[in-house]
Amino acid sequence: MTTEPDPPPRPREPKMSARIANRIADDILGGSVEVGQRLPTEKEMVAEFGVARTTVREALRLLESRDLVTIKAGIGGGPVATRPELTSLGSIVKLFLQIDGATISDVIDVRLMLEPTVAREAARHVDDARLEAMQDALDRMREDPGDYARFQLGNADFQRGVYEATGNPALRIVMEALWLLVRDAEPDEHPMATRLAAVEMQQDVLDALRSRDPDRAATTMDAFNKESARYYRRHLAAVIAQPVRWQL
């Protein structure tokens, strides 16, 4: 005699607080609630959802932990819609990298593998407006390379421009998170000669993108990233050899 196997357990329904948080998140991420817009008060949410105040507060805590809501204190305060930044993703990635004992050197290796592919895709999809914005970023870096904060902002705009030019949001998010992990590990300012050389190699990448030449774009990006990796391993070897460390 055979017996029928037990049916798989049904997935457990999420708690009411999670269901409320999901509804609010959908409104924020879907655009019906704009960033900076005040959400209903706790009292109004209690009436709207027909739940206890503690349930609403737990829902808001869940949203706040995901950087989708900021709770402003004081008179006229309350929950305000926000959007998470990629630094939030980078923090989570750091957590998992630390669990597996990954180093910044490991992250650099991944970028060496992926960046030429990104540049190849960018050359196929980039538009003129993006090209001009990236050229503006490089020009700003050249204007005053001694202003390191401004130089870093220009560098970030250029890198982000390459990723956005691919037209693939998933690829952009992954690559920018990896780039931020490496950038944030830098303990000091780069020497002036290194900054100027980086701008010229990035200009080579941009010229290849402007010509819509995928092979050339991949080659120039590969050269730029290999030179960057050599710099890190020559001058920041002790830093990039350390395991990635997650911190609040």
Rank of each mutant, 00 (worst) to 15 (best):
T2R: 15
P7D: 13
R10V: 08
E13V: 11
S17A: 13
I20A: 08
N22W: 02
E34G: 12
R38G: 13
P40H: 12
T41M: 09
E44H: 06
E48N: 15
R53E: 11
E64H: 08
L68Q: 05
L68G: 12
V69W: 06
K72W: 05
K72P: 07
G74Q: 08
G76T: 03
G76N: 02
G77R: 00
G77V: 09
P79W: 00
P79T: 06
A81Y: 00
A81R: 10
L86W: 01
L86A: 07
L86F: 02
T87M: 11
S88I: 00
S88F: 03
I92W: 13
V93W: 01
V93E: 09
L97G: 05
L97N: 10
Q98I: 03
D106W: 09
V107M: 00
M113I: 04
M113S: 15
L114R: 04
P116Y: 06
R120M: 09
H125I: 05
V126L: 10
L131A: 12
A133M: 12
M134N: 05
D136L: 15
D136K: 13
L138H: 11
R140Q: 13
R140H: 11
P145E: 08
D147G: 14
D147Q: 06
Y148C: 09
Y148S: 07
Q152E: 13
G154N: 03
A156C: 07
Q159A: 11
G161F: 02
E164N: 04
T166R: 05
T166E: 09
P169H: 14
M175K: 10
A177I: 00
L178S: 03
W179E: 00
L180H: 03
V182R: 05
R183H: 11
D184Q: 12
A185P: 00
P191R: 13
M192A: 14
M192I: 13
A193W: 06
T194C: 03
R195W: 02
L196E: 12
L196T: 03
A197D: 14
M201A: 15
M201R: 12
M201P: 00
D207W: 02
A208T: 05
S211Y: 06
A217E: 08
A218F: 01
M221W: 04
E227Q: 13
A229I: 04
A229F: 00
R230I: 04
Y232G: 03
R233C: 01
H235C: 05
V239N: 08
V244C: 08
R245S: 07
R245F: 00
W246R: 15
Q247L: 14
